[in-house]
């Protein structure tokens, strides 16, 4: 049994079916990249994994235990599943340090002093230690996103979901953020990420899934998807990405 199993997951908003039966299985230490056009269901799929969205069909299992449906302790689940959003979503009324310490102290019951030390260590590792007392509004997008990653890591999640985390950044700030993700991948953190950075996906992914209108059209190791895509729609998508200079 794989670490994370997504079995035939369906999700609709009203009459619009956003996910039409998606299945992925993720082993520990794997990095899965979801690619595809906007609106293809990448973000929705990620949000289903940590139950920000309820699935309408199928199920999701983490280490064999189902996390979808009624009766699941979603607060418990979310401690193990970190997520980073495209728009950072830091808490603007708290300093960087407080943003990071909030969940460990309030949810995991870590002592204030310990949480602070851990937060500082993590901030140091992403080069943000000197901004510990700054407020999110005074940081650049890249800095905010690094803090958001640290905030998720502070809960020591066993899997991280990254939802187009560089899509809102200035081009020159993308590199810093991707470097952190690269290191996390290297450390063996299991990750599921939706991204438009094809070059990056090619480099870090153990598996790439191409989503098209709520279904996985093609999946496989990055070399296969990027060098030798089988489906016509995948080829078309990738050739357009190449034309726009993103690969």
């Amino acid at each position: 049994m794989a670490f994370l199993e997504i079995n035939d997951v369906r999700k609709s908003y009203g009459h619009t079916e956003v996910l039409k039966g998606v299945s992925i299985s993720v082993e520990r230490h794997e990095v899965i990249c979801l690619i595809g056009a906007s609106g293809s269901g990448k973000s929705t799929l990620l949000r289903c994994v940590n139950q920000l969205e309820e699935v309408n069909g199928g199920e999701i299992l983490i280490e064999g235990d189902t996390v979808t449906g009624a009766g699941v302790d979603i607060n418990r689940l979310r401690r193990d599943v970190g997520i980073v959003f495209q728009s950072y979503n830091l808490f603007p009324h708290m300093s960087v340090l407080k943003n990071i310490m909030l969940a460990p102290t309030m949810v995991a019951g870590v002592k204030d002093k310990e949480a602070r030390e851990k937060a500082m260590t993590l901030l140091e590792s992403v080069g943000m230690a000197e901004k510990a007392d700054a407020y999110p509004d005074n940081l650049s997008g890249g800095q905010q996103q690094r803090v958001a990653i640290v905030r998720a890591l502070a809960m020591e999640p066993r899997i991280m979901l990254l939802d187009e985390i560089t899509a809102a950044l200035d081009p020159e700030l993308v590199g810093d953020v991707l470097e952190i993700v690269r290191e996390l991948a290297h450390d063996g953190l299991t990750m599921l990420l939706a991204t438009h950075e094809m070059g990056f996906a090619k480099e870090v992914a153990t598996q790439v899934c191409f989503l098209e209108q709520g279904s996985i059209l093609e999946k496989g190791p990055p070399e296969q998807i990027f060098e030798n895509p089988q489906e016509e729609r995948t080829q078309q998508f990738l050739s357009r990405v190449v034309k726009s200079g993103r690969l």
Binding site: V81, N89, L102, V107, A152, M155
Partner: peptide, 12 residues
């Protein structure tokens, strides 16, 4: 998105 971020961290 503030609620989403907070709930994702495991806050009730």
């Amino acid at each position: 998105s503030q609620t989403a971020a907070s709930r994702s961290l495991g806050l009730s």
